[in-house]
């Protein structure tokens, strides 16, 4: 099985581990993430105002190219997923805007394209049971907080990856990998997003609150699906340890890093060393993650 795959800019650069471990995991699970032959940036933010049609052209082009391979495209980055999925919905519902976009790109748009997040592929096409069978390094005993943030979930009507206000899909995956999911109040709150550019203080507060909320519930690890969340949470921690002596840092990792590692990939694939706090130290400390069979 080959599934068209859109990596997006960030996964091609600073979040390489997110990308590599996902590709490798797919192979282990018996399918291939087939990267689109050509792709551009999705725009990194969905144009909210309906008159901003130009903002739709870039993601629309990605969808047009994907549809040439298969009527399904998958992605990993929460933001890419959000932008692509909302664009697909907008263009499918609004033929007027679809027409303008087509005229601009000079290509036909295929409204049947379906955008799926990688975790949806795992849940609905592979099954977490199958994932569980493939686990070679159970990460038992590690308390992990699944941080969804905004982009996977909102607006609910469009995104619908899981139950809007109380999603559990990530937790279910982590459970399959042998981790102990931790429920925490701020799991769907905002990290501060692109305010990283203008208001570090605000990001430090919001992301710091997310981490404290998670660690306060016993989390030893925070799992995300968004490179910007990952960056903001790490930045917030770096800042926090400077300001607060009692701050206990936790690794902030992508869910595919854990997935691949648990399924026995070589450690290099996940690029744990690229995270500011290396999760392997935690594994060592906890005495988990040694290969079984």
């Amino acid at each position: 099985m080959k599934i068209p795959y859109y990596p997006g800019c960030t996964l091609n650069t600073v979040a390489k581990g997110f990308d590599l471990s996902a590709r490798e995991s797919a192979r282990t699970l018996g399918f291939e993430l087939a990267e689109l032959e050509q792709w551009s940036c999705c725009g990194a933010s969905f144009p909210l105002t309906p008159d901003n049609i130009i903002g739709l052209t870039s993601p629309a082009k990605v969808l047009i190219d994907a549809a040439k391979m298969d009527p399904v495209v998958t992605t990993l980055c929460s933001v890419c997923y959000n932008v692509l999925k909302r664009t697909a919905e907008t263009l499918a519902e609004d033929t007027e805007r679809q027409k303008v976009v087509e005229d601009f790109i000079e290509e036909r748009y295929n409204p049947s394209i379906e955008v799926l997040h990688f975790v949806e592929i795992l849940r609905d096409r592979i099954g977490f049971e199958k994932v569980k069978e493939k686990v070679k390094r159970p990460l038992g005993g590690i308390k992990a907080a699944s941080y969804y943030g905004c982009m996977l979930l909102r607006p609910f009507k469009t995104m619908g990856i899981d139950r809007a206000e109380a999603p559990t899909v990530m937790e279910e995956l982590l459970e399959a990998l042998g981790l102990e999911p931790v429920e925490f109040p701020k799991k769907i709150e905002c990290c501060g997003a692109h305010l990283a550019m203008t208001r570090e203080d605000v990001v430090a507060k919001l992301s710091g609150d997310v981490i404290e909320s998670a660690t306060g519930c016993g989390a030893e690890l925070v799992v995300t699906s968004c490179p910007l969340c990952q960056y903001n949470l790490e930045e917030a921690q770096s800042r926090a340890i400077e300001e607060r002596r009692d701050w206990k840092t936790v690794p902030i990792v992508y869910f595919t890093q854990l997935l691949g590692y648990a399924m026995g990939q070589t450690e290099g694939v996940a690029c744990f060393d690229k995270n500011r706090w290396d999760a392997r130290e935690l594994f060592k400390e906890k005495g988990v993650g040694s290969c079984q069979g």
Binding site: C9, A44, H194
Partner: peptide, 18 residues
Amino acid sequence: PFLKGAPQQALVCGFRKF
């Protein structure tokens, strides 16, 4: 430092918003 270290998406998004 921000421009160098931040994920691309933060830059793209930030530019588009600001």
